[in-house]
Design a protein around this nucleic acid. Structure first.
Length: 407
DNA sequence: AATGTGACCAACCGCTCGAAA
DNA sequence: CTTTCGAGCGGTTGGTCACAT
């Protein structure tokens, strides 16, 4: 399966194209179109494989190609798109008219990568290099801790959340992603997966649900309290909104952060936006973030809770199922209604120490959006092909402020 | 002038995906 | 359902050029 047969054909020319070959190719396509690429060389009188012809046409001879040096705007856009899409060069190229994926890839590898590194930004993760270093250290440390403290209450969160089981599941689902990031801290999709699966199974098993607090705290600790907002102050994409329910634990939060129907309010670099429930379509609280802290406030009288749309993780595996059926009144609202996620804080009920993953914040939200990019991203994110672990991961990657001054 | 080095870029290679047989 | 094949994608290679030594 798969291997292009022409790769093995002999007596075909390779290497650079001569002007005569180019002319033949252009003439034939102009007259007849390219049709089936595999039969194209024969019809066009070329001693090349169809694949080579296709590549030559797409990357070099196509009349709509722009060529020439990339503008600063184009470079910035590439960085921005790379932060979202990763090495999806064809998708990035689709956003830059007249540019080919090959061209962009070359630019990235030869120039942009270097410039980013010079600015102290890791081109792969779009995080500050210092943070990446820290994360590597933290990752190593956490592994050691994990080994050394089997059964330790410090890691109850991991144990009670079926960390290993869920990791295995995720490994099955996204093998490349997980294995390639073996030393990285838990990814967004890991937590997302845990959140969804534990809730789906929480009534039938004794899995301690990974609750919204943990989920959001993960966002805070791993992505600097950024839920759904790009960090790039110049671009300011809202990466996902209510139309893309996949980005927030689906059946629990359908509409979380939107740019079209629930507008965040901004005051002194503090952003507050409503959290809406899928079932009720009403705002059930707010999520507030400033540079140094993130908080969630949930309204007690929301119908959202009355409908038991999701549990808040109060279940205790040590209790019987009957015992764990908590009356809403029994929930310690003081713990849940105003949970501060500060770096270094310990999250209630889960004893996950944020110190393990904490990162310096210094985050700024802005909301003046690039509408075209936002709209495009919305469209892109609705495409199933993008609903992958990889893209999820990229969507949550930070775009350091430095991009704005990138030059 | 000769040689070394790095940047750039066109092209190739190997792989996956999806449609068709 | 399985196999085959074409199209397309992303990683890598290798040639060319400019600049430094």
């Amino acid at each position: 399966m798969g291997r292009h047969s022409c790769c093995y054909k002999q007596k075909l020319r390779k290497g650079l194209w001569s002007p005569e070959e180019d002319e033949k190719l252009i003439n034939h396509i102009t007259k007849y179109g390219h049709g089936c690429w595999s039969s194209f060389p024969k019809l066009a009188g070329l001693q090349r494989c169809g694949k080579s012809c296709r590549l030559r046409w797409i990357n070099y001879l196509r009349p709509d190609l722009k060529r020439g040096k990339f503008s600063q705007e184009e470079e910035n856009l590439i960085i921005e798109l790379h932060a979202v899409l990763g090495n999806k060069w064809s998708q990035i190229a689709a956003r830059l008219p007249g540019r080919t994926d090959n061209e962009i890839k070359n630019l990235w590898n030869s120039s942009i990568k270097k410039k980013l590194r010079q600015k102290g930004i890791d081109p792969n993760t779009h995080k500050l290099l210092s943070e990446v270093d820290n994360e590597e250290k933290v990752s190593a440390t956490s592994k050691n801790i994990e080994k050394a403290s089997e059964g330790s209450s410090e890691l109850n969160f991991i144990e009670n959340s079926n960390y290993g089981v869920e990791t295995e599941k995720l490994m099955d689902r996204y093998p490349n992603n997980m294995t390639s990031a073996a030393s990285a801290p838990p990814t967004h999709e890991f937590f997302l997966n845990m959140f969804v699966t534990t809730h789906e199974s929480s009534t039938a098993s004794c899995n301690k649900p990974l609750d919204m607090a943990s989920y959001l705290s993960f966002q805070q600790l791993n992505y600097g309290s950024n839920i759904g907002l790009s960090m790039n102050p110049n671009i300011n994409n809202l990466l996902f909104n209510s139309k893309n329910s996949e980005m927030i634990p689906h059946h629990h939060f359908n509409s979380s952060i939107t740019n079209d129907n629930i507008l965040p309010s901004i005051s002194n670099s503090i952003v507050t936006f409503p959290i809406a429930a899928a079932a009720s379509n009403n705002s059930i609280g707010t999520f507030t973030s400033s540079g140094s802290s993130t908080s969630i406030e949930l309204q007690r009288n929301s119908s959202f809770f009355d409908g038991n749309a999701f549990s808040w993780g109060a279940a205790d595996c040590g209790k019987s199922e009957k015992e764990t059926e908590t009356d809403p009144e029994d929930i310690k609202w003081s713990e849940y209604l105003h949970t501060q996620f500060l770096p270094g804080n310990t999250i209630h009920n889960h004893q996950i120490t944020q110190d393990l993953y904490s990162e310096k914040s210094g985050i700024q939200f802005t909301t003046q959006g690039s509408l075209s990019t936002t709209t495009w991203l919305q469209n892109q994110l609705q495409q199933p092909s993008l609903q992958t672990a990889d893209s999820y991961n990229k969507h949550f990657q930070r775009i350091p402020d430095a991009f704005g001054q990138f030059s």
